[in-house]
Simulated scan of single mutants.
Amino acid sequence: MLGRAANGVYWMSRYLERAENTARLIDVGFHLALTRSDKHAQDEEWKSVLTTTGQVDDYAARHTDFGGPQVFNYLLRDKDNPASVLRMMENARTNARMVRTSLTNSVWEATNEGWMNLSELLARPVREANLGEVLTAIRRQGTLVRGALEGTMLRNEVFNFARIGTFIERADSTARILDVKYYVLLPSVAWVGSSLDNVQWDTLLRSVAGNRAYSWLNAGAMDPRGIARFLILDGQFPRSLVFCYEKLRSNLGGLAKEYGEETSAHAIMRDTGEMLQRTTIEGIFETGLHEFLQDFIGRTSQLGNAIAADYRFIE
């Protein structure tokens, strides 16, 4: 497969996953802000969403106010924001069109129709009254494309590159969300163990669509260490770090089988996967959750760079 085509499939999936993750964070920010009684506290919640997505500096360079409508419109549709959901969906469609002949009609149509629907929804500023409708549409779009991919694509190199893009993006997002919880979302050490702390852990789970699954496994008990274990080490949860790396192992293995050799990316993936398998939550907290997550984010970035180099992606 040509590097340009592999690059297109890979980034199509990364942009779709990133758009959905951003929509989930906006939804959490909106509901958290509703629980705050004063504007400063509400603005801090919205600022935390920008921090999690890595856009707080760019936003602050253009705006001085962190009010909800201004922040979520910036994240969703601002023309000056190259990382907006609208731009991400456009990039996903552009990459899909570039590899159109490698995709089934179902995958292409789901991507293209999603872009058109969201372009219409985001043609005008989003209000709080219709924010839920917009966020639901973004999440649904990711689900439709993944469903078409799973249901209609051959399990070949195209499928493997698409899945690799999804799970690298998902692993990075889960790690960043969990890291920000300790350094931004919790306003003060004095709040640890309080009702506010529990609410924020619950919203953290909601941001990765894990609140129902966690409740099933833990009878609804909001234990910070248990939640960290769930998001990092639970192999049953499809957004945990362990789960993502198991899928990366499978799909990179598929590429090795198809091409007849492994690359440097396989070694990086295997090393990180084995590290996760050896890790315990006690060991993570003893070393430091922030330090562990920063190391993991660095490893995942290194893996993405190695894949691009090994398979000759062309930007």
Rank of each mutant, 00 (worst) to 15 (best):
R4V: 03
N7I: 02
Y10S: 01
Y15Q: 08
E20D: 09
A23L: 06
F30A: 15
S37M: 13
K39E: 15
H40R: 14
H40L: 14
A41P: 07
Q42H: 12
D43V: 06
S48K: 08
V49L: 10
T53S: 06
T53Q: 03
D57M: 07
D58A: 09
D58F: 01
R62I: 10
R62F: 05
T64L: 15
F66Y: 15
G67P: 08
N73V: 10
N73P: 04
D78H: 13
K79M: 06
S84V: 06
L86H: 11
L86K: 14
M88E: 06
M88L: 13
M89L: 12
E90A: 07
A92T: 02
R97S: 01
R100T: 09
S106P: 03
G114N: 07
W115F: 12
L121T: 12
A129R: 14
N130D: 15
R139Y: 02
R140D: 14
V145C: 00
V145T: 04
R146T: 12
G147S: 11
L149I: 11
T152N: 08
N156F: 02
N160H: 14
R163S: 10
A171Q: 02
Y182P: 05
L186N: 13
P187S: 02
S188F: 03
V189C: 00
W191I: 15
W191H: 13
V192A: 12
S194N: 05
N198T: 10
N198S: 12
Q200V: 05
G210S: 10
N211D: 15
N211R: 14
R212Y: 13
Y214Q: 10
L217N: 04
L217H: 12
A221L: 07
A221E: 14
R225G: 08
I227H: 03
A228S: 13
R229M: 10
L231H: 00
L233N: 11
F237E: 04
P238I: 04
F243T: 02
C244V: 03
E246S: 13
R249K: 14
N251I: 00
G253I: 01
G253R: 03
A256V: 05
E258R: 07
E258V: 03
E261S: 13
E261F: 11
E262Y: 05
T263L: 05
A265G: 11
H266G: 10
D271T: 15
G283R: 12
I284D: 12
F285Q: 15
G288D: 08
H290W: 07
D295E: 13
D295I: 04
D295W: 06
G298M: 10
T300G: 04
N305C: 11
N305V: 13
A306Q: 08
I307P: 03
D310L: 04
D310I: 03
F313D: 00
